[in-house]
């Protein structure tokens, strides 16, 4: 059985003046490993390879990376799903500054997340028990609250590439709609007025890369459409 050809993006700011691709041959012994397991094999031989990882089951969002051109989570992406012609190219998430190898600086991504005020706002007095919410209202949060902040979507979005400082991006907007859609949140108008400028929401051009890459199967484009509808309803 031939070994898997892996081409890995390498950059160490202390020693490399520019990033380069390093070739590895990995013997997977015919197993359909996850990409993360493959990286672990590589790291056993070359401990200098850097990547983030934590839960290894697709819920923490640490190991978002670009695998043969598509963003995804290394820990839940089997080789059989991405390897083409026995070749795998691994790169960091596009559009963000690289710290080292597959590790990117996610500050801009987190800033956009914080900007939409990602927390429930409710001015009414706190009841002695929980706030009630009908199952139907709760259902509206499905497909929204499950985001793991892996940044696969935002870093696959050309609008986010061009304006990461002004366009909230699919992850942040999904989160924003998670609160707009929550029957317990009372800050709808405030949230909407923070979003009506030409960049925050309206830079979305419906390219839908976000939907294509989301490892949790979420649909930020639909959420963005809903925000637009709410803005429209609010303004007319």
């Amino acid at each position: 059985m031939s070994k898997l050809q892996v081409s890995l993006y390498r950059y160490n700011p202390e020693t490399d003046s520019a990033p380069y691709m390093q070739e590895f041959e990995v013997d997977t012994q015919g197993r359909d490993l996850m990409v993360l397991n493959l990286l672990e094999l590589i790291k056993q031989d070359d401990t200098t390879v850097a990547y983030r990882r934590s839960c290894r089951e697709g819920v923490c969002g640490s190991d978002g990376m670009n695998m043969n051109g598509t963003n995804g989570l290394a820990c839940i992406t089997p080789l059989s799903q991405v390897v083409k012609n026995n070749k795998l190219v691994l790169r960091p998430l596009p559009g963000l500054p690289v710290v080292r190898d597959l590790v990117v600086d996610m500050s801009l991504f987190y800033q956009q997340y914080e900007r939409i005020q990602p927390y429930l706002k409710n001015d009414s007095p706190v009841p002695a028990i929980e706030r009630l919410q009908s199952p139907e209202d709760r259902d509206k949060l499905d497909g929204l609250y499950e985001c793991i902040l892996c940044a696969c979507c935002s870093t696959a979005c050309p609008s986010f590439w061009w304006n990461p400082d002004k366009f909230v991006g699919p992850a942040g907007l999904l989160k924003s709609y998670r609160f707009l859609a929550d029957s317990r949140d009372t800050a709808t108008n405030e949230r909407l007025s923070d979003l009506e400028d030409p960049f925050s929401v309206f830079r979305c051009r419906g390219i839908m890369n976000c939907v294509a890459v989301c490892p949790k199967g979420l649909n930020p484009t639909r959420a963005i459409g809903k925000i637009r509808e709410m803005l429209l309803a609010n303004a007319t």
Binding site: D194, L195, E196, D197, P198, F199, S200, F202, R228, L232
Partner: peptide
Amino acid sequence: MVTNITSFSRSGLSDWII
């Protein structure tokens, strides 16, 4: 909220409707 003076309406919503 992002402000930008070169956008006529300064509102993404207006631009979008226009």
